[in-house]
Design a protein around this nucleic acid. Structure first.
Lengths: 341, 341
DNA sequence: CGTTTTTCCGTAAACGTTTACGACAACATA
DNA sequence: TATGTTGTCGTAAACGTTTACGGAAAAACG
């Protein structure tokens, strides 16, 4: 069925060694025989057995991305990740590497699956997303010395590792600046409850900017909920029912914003008229919502490409000439002004 | 670094054969030595090298799912797939199998990536989604005899293969029935333009139901666009500008519905008041949109589990006792009545 | 005590690659 | 002619498993 290197060798009456060398483009093989090998490979529809190759080479030629469904009934996905993965995959494919996405079971926060990937050596490196303030995955990977890179920062991990993050702190501050410039003084912030690092960063920027404007930070205007529509829906009334309700809300996430707007609508409050709304991470939802939501857009696809570069550069076996040699990068978020604030 | 079966053998002063047998739970090994092997494995943190194992076994113990970003700038993902993948992964994990998700490059409709997965034997079987009317992937897989299953039906492929689909035809008809019962006679249908099979099925049900009610099918009320927000936004005005505009619209997809509602809003038309709206495939967006959109909900997570069962049952090496032995199943879609119709 | 059966384990081959090493011929150099 | 150099290729070992086969010891049986 599947042809091996032996089939090629037998077919051409040469040794498997030469076949392998010809296929791998090594120098010590006659140009003529190389061509014959290549032709035979095409004719016999040969393609190398991945298991055999990685066993011998000690590397799998593939990179894993951990995708984690959050707990909760009918949990839907982060549209966020697809363009990022597209960029990641594109850059890896340029280098002949495969991207595999490993699904975790809901709830275990990837620990078990991650161990499995590492221990069975299913990939040469792994890309983590949704980093937490303290992230045991990062500790684990540094401890066992497995190559990795993260989308997002963390305080964990002793040694430096490639990471790419968005400047959520600046985005939080920019959002506040913009709202203050438009006359708002009572600005609420709604962020995810899990200790996802970008939630902290956002809040830090929010606080700093408020103080800079001489506005006291009111704890009643800060709420955290589950990072999905239900979370936003549940938590928004809480800030609205505070003693001194806000005139503007910054949501950390499009899904939370959708839920929040639903809650507002039920209170008869219209975003863009009675309430200013800004979302930190833009998605098509923000653009096509009515009113269109002002949001900060991340360049996800380039981010995927860049993080792949950074990861590859950090692995000796793969290091090539891949742009600048930085190991941590923080990219700006671009504000897309629309109709909701 | 990583301990192999040799390390265990040396550590215990026994042969690698016994170690392997002990680990794999074969009968011909003393209960005592098995325990010692297991203990040593835990102590030395042993876990089998996947490449070595699959090379010898001739199977990878993993199933691939092909995830395809659609072409188009900043294409975001189908939230749809995450719960489905969760179910798939859960069932496969029960059997000790890994699920890997393979990203295609945008545009090539998976052909190239699929070939790569098959030819390098990276997985033992593959799960396809978004099946088309005529699907070359299905033809290819049946031709080369590679095990697969599909989420969705197709007309391709000579031999039967495990497939699980939703009854889009009935959903289309049910939507029409419901709207007619509420007094509508001019009902538009908006569906994806790619020849995705569920678009055809939906439209067939829609047509059939209209005829059953003695309503003439007006081609001007049927439009197809790209299967995302932009598609819905672009195409909805087209049906609204027809000579005899609709009083109700059925969208095939939540993203298209969002775009469509945006277009309606810009024309001053409010879903649920001036226009009835029904969506075929429900997501959290439908529930948290204002007004909440009436939609048909698919049980995605159980579907993932069931399709995994069906796939496994169709592979001799994996067949176990996995529920009913059907090979094609069509599941009903449950209507969730909300405020938009 | 001799024979047969059972239990347990070691040996070695095999899966499909890659690659260090050496062999051989052809050729160049002294 | 003797020696070194270069180009090309075959041989065989190695990667980490699984498993067919056979053998030795122990147990069962007469």
């Amino acid at each position: 069925m599947a042809s091996s290197i032996y089939d090629l060798a037998r077919h051409l009456n040469i040794s498997i060694g030469t076949v392998s060398r010809a296929l791998n483009g090594r120098a010590d093989v006659n140009a003529d025989t190389r061509q014959r090998v290549l032709d035979a490979a095409a004719k016999l529809n040969y393609s190398p057995n991945q298991s055999g190759r990685s066993l011998r080479r000690g590397s799998t030629h593939s990179i894993a991305f951990m995708l984690q469904p959050h707990p909760g009934d009918q949990q839907y996905g982060e549209p966020f990740f697809i363009p990022f993965l597209t960029g990641l995959q594109a850059k890896l494919a340029e280098r002949g590497l495969d991207l595999i996405v490993v699904m975790g079971a809901p709830g275990d926060y990837q620990q078990e699956r991650l161990r499995r990937v590492v221990e069975t050596r299913r990939a040469d490196a792994v890309v983590l997303a949704w980093t937490r303030r303290e992230d045991e995955r990062i500790d684990y990977l540094t401890r066992v010395g497995f190559p990795f890179a993260t989308l997002g920062r963390s305080r964990s991990g002793g040694k430096p590792y490639p990471s790419l993050d968005l400047d959520f702190e600046k985005a939080g501050a920019d959002a506040v600046d913009r709202l203050v410039a438009r006359g708002h003084r009572r600005i609420a912030a709604i962020r995810p409850s899990l200790n996802l690092n970008f939630g902290y960063l956002f809040l830090a920027g929010y606080r700093k900017a408020l103080r800079r404007h001489g506005i006291e930070v009111d704890p009643e205007l800060i709420a955290s909920g589950f990072i999905n529509e239900a979370g936003g829906y549940e938590v928004t009334p809480r800030v609205m029912n505070s003693r001194n309700p806000p005139t503007a809300i910054i949501f950390n996430n499009d899904a939370m914003a959708l839920g929040g707007c639903k809650a507002l609508a039920e209170m008869g409050i219209r975003p863009g008229h009675d309430m200013a709304v800004i979302v930190i991470v833009d998605t098509p939802l923000c653009r096509y919502f009515s009113p269109a939501l002002t949001a900060f857009r991340p360049p996800l696809e380039p981010m995927g490409r860049r993080l792949a570069e950074m990861l590859l550069a950090s692995i000796p076996a793969y290091a090539g000439e891949e742009g600048p040699r930085t190991i941590r990068e923080v990219w700006p978020l671009e504000l897309i002004a629309r109709d909701s604030d």
